[in-house]
Amino acid sequence: MIVPLDIIIFLVLIIAAVLAINVKDLLAAVALLAGYSLFASLLFAGVNAVDVSLVEAALGAGLTGVLFIGAILATSRHSTAKRNLRRRWTMLPLIAAFIGLMLFASTGLPDRGDPEAPAHQGVSRTYLSQSLEDTETPNVVTSLLADYRSQDTLGETLVIVTAALAAMLVLVRREGDDEDDTRGSDPGGDTSGEARGTTDDEQESGRDPYADEREGGRR
């Protein structure tokens, strides 16, 4: 916890977040997002949350980026959505209200690093003093994860596996699936323009000509 360093990292985070939201090339946005997660993991390491830092670096920065890149390769690389100015101007007061509310709520929160904060008075002191005796595990986060609160972890693991199954259910093509596939055979992003232009016609005609070829090649 070095305050000037923290502030610099926070400024980098803010810049990366703004750029990731606004840049038009989606791959660049994903790279910025990965950088954002990496700097967040630096902040986690700075406040001695080593486990969280490792998980954020591996999963938040690494795997999220990989999943995003996979999805972008399967769709289009360039953000082609039109700006919706009306919605933007409706949302800005909403966001301002949200910030005002949160700012008001933050006045009731304890100071940073206060050992007397209410959150530290509860059960975690027991965990810290008992962990080595109970489970022979020096890393308290691990003993919390897999022993004291293992039902929580069981639920989280179930959520992950369910997420994988849900993704499969959403995307796997079945035999005789007559979904309207407007994607070109080229995985790159540059087909998106023509694909968007032709969608209306292809919706009428049903299946696209490449679908059979692709399905046949895969099976």
Partner: peptide
């Protein structure tokens, strides 16, 4: 995971 940062998730 028992002795340092790490464990199943990471």
């Amino acid at each position: 995971g028992h002795y340092g940062p790490g464990g199943g998730f990471a």
